[in-house]
């Protein structure tokens, strides 16, 4: 082993060059792990207003990120972050999180609202929010077990035109009362 100072510097210099030259481009795992500081390890969120990405559909993540990137979907921080990724990188992250198990949350929820939501979801939401909200048709997001405060913030953004509802959703949501909608959110938060 080279022990002189000059030797160390030389060895370190070669090392720096070689690792940089050999390094593979960021993998799906490398890209996605960086998100976990806010969205939880493997995308399982412990923060009540931050969505879990674990088990979310790839299409829903890609759709959300592309809309954040273009500014079509309003955000606080996500738009600024989404602009840092190529479309291919966004797809890679979507794939990574979609392969993780849904993050089951334990929330204190009003059982009356949960029951009411359960009776409403079948007729109103289940064509797109499949499997009791565990999956989604096309780019429809999965909602099962998301934190209630997160779901409430999103619904409020829909109702105040800060987030654009897909047409099919708007048709279903319009006739429902705020109490109905709140019950639905309680229901989806309760699904494990």
């Amino acid at each position: 082993m080279i022990k002189t100072r000059k030797g160390w510097a030389l060895a370190a210099g070669i090392l720096a060059v070689s690792t940089t030259a050999l390094a593979a481009p960021p993998s799906a795992e490398m890209l996605s792990n960086a998100c976990a500081g806010c969205h939880g390890t493997n995308g399982g969120s412990a923060g009540l207003t931050m969505p879990s990405l674990a088990g979310q559909s790839k299409e829903a993540i890609v759709d959300a990120m592309k809309k954040y990137k273009s500014g079509e979907r309003k955000s606080t921080i996500m738009g600024r972050l989404a602009k840092g990724y190529s479309d291919a990188q966004i797809v890679a992250m979507g794939e990574f999180f979609s392969k993780k198990k849904i993050h089951a949350t334990n929330q204190t929820l009003d059982p009356v609202k949960v029951a009411k939501g359960a009776s409403l979801q079948e007729a109103n939401c289940s064509r797109c929010h499949l499997e009791e909200g565990r999956e989604g048709k096309d780019d429809t997001p999965a909602m099962a077990s998301q934190w209630l405060p997160y779901l409430q913030i999103q619904m409020n953004q829909y109702l105040t035109d800060q987030r654009k509802m897909p047409e099919k959703m708007a048709e279903k949501v319009k006739p429902l009362s705020k109490a109905d909608l709140d019950a639905l959110l309680h229901y989806y938060a309760s699904v494990k």
Binding site: A36, G37, G40, K83
Partner: peptide
């Protein structure tokens, strides 16, 4: 062309910040 600061003071960001703390400390 990515990143940067908030456009303005924000109540929503104060709410999100709490979840930031919860998630990063849980990690």
């Amino acid at each position: 062309n990515s990143g940067g600061v908030s456009p303005d003071l924000s109540e929503l960001e104060a709410i999100y910040a709490e979840s930031w703390l919860k998630n990063i400390l849980t990690e």
